[in-house]
Design a protein around this nucleic acid. Sequence first.
DNA 1: TCACACTCGCGCAAAGACGCTCACTCGCGC
DNA 2: GCGCGAGTGAGCGTCTTTGCGCGAGTGTGA
Lengths: 258, 258
Amino acid sequence: MLRETRHEQLLKLLREEGVLPVGRIAQRLGVSEATARRDLTDLDRAGMLTRVYGGAVARGPVERPFAAEEAEGRAGRDAVARTAAATVEDGETVLLDIGTTTLQLARRLRGRSITVATSNLAVYDELKDDPEVTLVLLGGQVRRNYRSLVGPLTQSGLGQLYADRLFLGTSGVLPDGRVLDTTDVEVPVKQAMLAAARHVVLLATARKFPGTGTARICGPQDIDALITNQASDPGTLAVFREAGVEVTAVDAELEGRR
Amino acid sequence: MLRETRHEQLLKLLREEGVLPVGRIAQRLGVSEATARRDLTDLDRAGMLTRVYGGAVARGPVERPFAAEEAEGRAGRDAVARTAAATVEDGETVLLDIGTTTLQLARRLRGRSITVATSNLAVYDELKDDPEVTLVLLGGQVRRNYRSLVGPLTQSGLGQLYADRLFLGTSGVLPDGRVLDTTDVEVPVKQAMLAAARHVVLLATARKFPGTGTARICGPQDIDALITNQASDPGTLAVFREAGVEVTAVDAELEGRR
DNA sequence: TCACACTCGCGCAAAGACGCTCACTCGCGC
DNA sequence: GCGCGAGTGAGCGTCTTTGCGCGAGTGTGA
């Protein structure tokens, strides 16, 4: 592996984890500890991280989707979440993807007589005290920064479920309708979710057009409905409409207050 | 553990408890009191806490106004938990059953380089902030009052795991060595756990002899080791020894403090 | 005021991390 | 084929951190 590539990966790891000991860095990068140390001193000198005895800590804010996204685009997200909540009927089983938009939706689902299945640990925290909601957690390894469950256990758990409705989150939607995600490890989970639901609803605030992401989750043909803001790119929405997707665009300003 | 990580944990502990003596800080962080003192002076100089004679107090508001901990049988449970934690080696995968004894064990496993798999949601809350522990949640339906996961999802998840060690809780042990539980719905989960571990360790404080329970989980022949208190019924312990179980009886008073 | 128990800070030794040096491998150009 | 330079891994002396013992200091109760 090229050194530049390795440096990129190291910084990515560190952004996700916050702090990492040298041994674990070497292990994750597949190099010796000596090389890991060399990389660390390089990146420390370049000001990309802070070296500490025994490892390194991320410089700047740790990549925490929840903290980072919490402030920005909140009104739009809540408008989407409220509209999504209105489509859920009592008695249904809904499957909630990871992310902040689905967390917002979970808040709007409090007190409803429904079953919620999720790999979103933030949703678990939100609904764990609600006696009305039957809460089902998918299994899997805990990813602390993303507050999610991933891994083969999650996928196999999804194989045993069938939900009335899936609310899918995303990190970005391309103009041609491809739905993206940033982290590779979540992709198989999301795809297993798609297969485990009768009705697939994509939640995407205006900022998700085009948003970010490198891994493809699915295309418009896999989606039944899309709930988004009116500020979203009209061209992309048209692509979804042409693919037969029921598109609902709610205005953040009108709906955005509580 | 990295010093930076340790400092983070120390501050978190302090935010939760408000005031902490040096001894307890050292105990919770798994370091000597000397190191705890050094950390305290560092963080005091950095203005992150206020040093007082004998310990430290949080600077800023306390998050949790001191949750009332279950007093009864606590010393005995902690003695069992500490002994159990000592048998776990770094790198192992341990499976933790539901219950308060295994929760106590989880507290003792903080900061260890191990993988913890559990259906115990209290264990999840305890370890979710620990970067050292790889945490795997079994899937299943959330049982709020028992803080556990149950159901077919839990069992099938266990079918995909194989742990080095299972720490099994119980509600009661009969004189003939039958291990009991009170709730039928947990029985298949516990039995699936038995099948998913190489080494089965039963944790049972003195109060569990005979304890309560209506459903049979397993017999002595399914257990490899039993960790209990010295006050436990000698006859029952003899039954386990005859079945080839390695019985460890730790005294709550002697082990209860350090 | 005094005595006792506890805490604190310092010196020291062991363990582990660091970084320097050296040998080796791989790709490249002559 | 052969030399060359960059990059990696391993060995080894140095330095940091940690845990423990000891004398000094501090708080508490008689």
